[in-house]
Amino acid sequence: MAHEAQTEPATDSGRLPPIKYLVVSYPAIALVTLFAVPLLLLFVFSFFRNISGGYLRYVVTAENYVRFLQEPLYLDRLVFSLRIAAVTTLGSLVLGYPLAYRLATTDSSLLRRAVMVLVVSSLWLTFIIRGYAWAVLLRSNGLFPILAAELGLTDAPVSLVPGYWALVVSMVYVFLPFMVLTLYTSIKNVDHELREAARNLGAGPITTFRHVTLPLTKDGIISGSLLVFVLSMGVYVLPRILGNPPQWTLAVVIGNQVTVESNVPFGATLSIILMLVVVALIAVTVRLAGVDTFGVSATEEGEQG
């Protein structure tokens, strides 16, 4: 995500001393070369023409964008990506909130540290390894199908992979740490005295949660959900490992356009469209929720959220 360049304190004259331009310029240069320029190239390529059986022609045409609108397949994949991102977000919220809550309110710092290490360290492993781990657990001689058969839920161990639920489970697993970490901070910031005040005024634990903790962690919930949603929109590896073509997200299709079909312009087009959709979603959420997400706030400075 974009980060702000640190501005150095101004001198008496009100202008930055020359040497400090260097310090400011480094992040700016990095941002431009590693982010803005490739993005611009992508945008430009999306207007080129692809040649079947050949390379591409450097002409400016909108035919790739037209193709996206005309061929229902690609809009369908976009919708599928949105759907699975939504399911993943919901899943990680439902699983993540209780975990984050327990972590934030427990007195035992040993427990807190141990679980935190577990949660954060799972992020050190690449998606691929974690995805394959689920492939192993969910195939017909894997732990979960065998368990399900033992418990009588199925007659015989049924392989869940490749498949939709294998993909969802692995996505929730992979993105859960992001949700937990965001929620943890948010919940921790709720003064425990507020909960005590609620209890003192007659609210039981569940009522206290509903009326005090939950509303006060609204920002964290929205931030965490947005983060997981955006990350989920970009999954490429997991659908390929754990899903069949019907579970391919738009990102997989984009990858295939470039690596399998040698159609770089159309791949670029789909990428731009995907990006615009995600950016639009973020903008709408921030606006509606009035939430201070990633330092982007919908409320003006000075106003209380």
Partner: peptide
Amino acid sequence: AFGLTVGG
């Protein structure tokens, strides 16, 4: 009103 509406 918390103690009246929520707590009671």
